[in-house]
Simulated assay, not measured.
Amino acid sequence: MYSDQILPTTKTQVGESRVEKIDVSGAVSSWNPAYLKTAIEKSDPVPEQKNDPDGIRAVVAGTLGRQSKKVSVREVPDGTLTR
């Protein structure tokens, strides 16, 4: 799945279900919020890496139609987005 497909796919699967918390965890310090809107895999030029957890939170909340306070963004040592 391309990076810009993650949130729309999640939104389709969750639909109107109640969501208590959204956890974004992984190598968030090396991601750019733009990666979740435009596929990094197809971008030319690729947007630079950027440590912007608040930007990631805003994109996730906005795309999923949820409140930002329900989205936590945290760095984990394994270097991959896990959720």
Rank of each mutant, 00 (worst) to 15 (best):
Met1Ala: 10
Ser3Val: 04
Asp4Gly: 14
Asp4Arg: 07
Asp4Thr: 06
Gln5Val: 11
Ile6Trp: 01
Leu7Ile: 06
Leu7Ser: 04
Leu7Lys: 02
Pro8Thr: 06
Lys11Ala: 03
Lys11Val: 01
Lys11Asp: 01
Gln13Trp: 06
Val14Pro: 08
Gly15Ala: 08
Gly15Asn: 10
Gly15Pro: 11
Arg18Val: 11
Arg18Pro: 04
Arg18His: 14
Arg18Ala: 13
Val19Ser: 07
Glu20Pro: 05
Lys21Tyr: 08
Lys21Glu: 11
Lys21Ala: 00
Asp23Ile: 14
Asp23Trp: 00
Val24Pro: 03
Val24Gln: 01
Gly26Trp: 02
Ala27Asn: 09
Ala27His: 03
Ala27Ser: 00
Ala27Gln: 00
Val28Cys: 04
Ser29Arg: 09
Ser29His: 10
Pro33Glu: 09
Ala34Met: 07
Ala34Ile: 04
Tyr35Ser: 00
Leu36Pro: 00
Leu36Gly: 03
Lys37Gln: 13
Ile40Cys: 09
Glu41His: 12
Lys42Thr: 13
Lys42Asn: 13
Asp44Cys: 09
Asp44Arg: 15
Pro45Arg: 13
Pro45His: 10
Val46Met: 11
Pro47Leu: 12
Pro47Glu: 08
Glu48Met: 15
Gln49Thr: 11
Gln49Asp: 11
Gln49His: 10
Lys50Ile: 07
Lys50Gly: 04
Asn51Ala: 12
Asp52Gln: 05
Pro53Cys: 06
Pro53Arg: 05
Asp54Trp: 00
Gly55His: 04
Ile56Ala: 06
Ile56Asn: 04
Arg57His: 10
Ala58Pro: 00
Val59Glu: 02
Val60Gln: 02
Gly62Gln: 03
Gly62Ile: 01
Thr63Arg: 01
Thr63Met: 02
Gly65Leu: 06
Gly65Glu: 02
Arg66Tyr: 05
Arg66Phe: 02
Gln67Lys: 07
Ser68Gly: 06
Ser68Met: 10
Ser68Glu: 12
Lys70Glu: 11
Val71Tyr: 00
Val71Ile: 03
Ser72Met: 05
Val73Thr: 09
Arg74Ser: 09
Arg74Asp: 15
Arg74Cys: 14
Arg74Glu: 13
Arg74Gly: 06
Val76Trp: 03
Asp78Arg: 13
Asp78Trp: 13
Asp78Val: 09
Thr80Lys: 14
Thr80Ala: 10
Thr80Asp: 14
Leu81Thr: 08
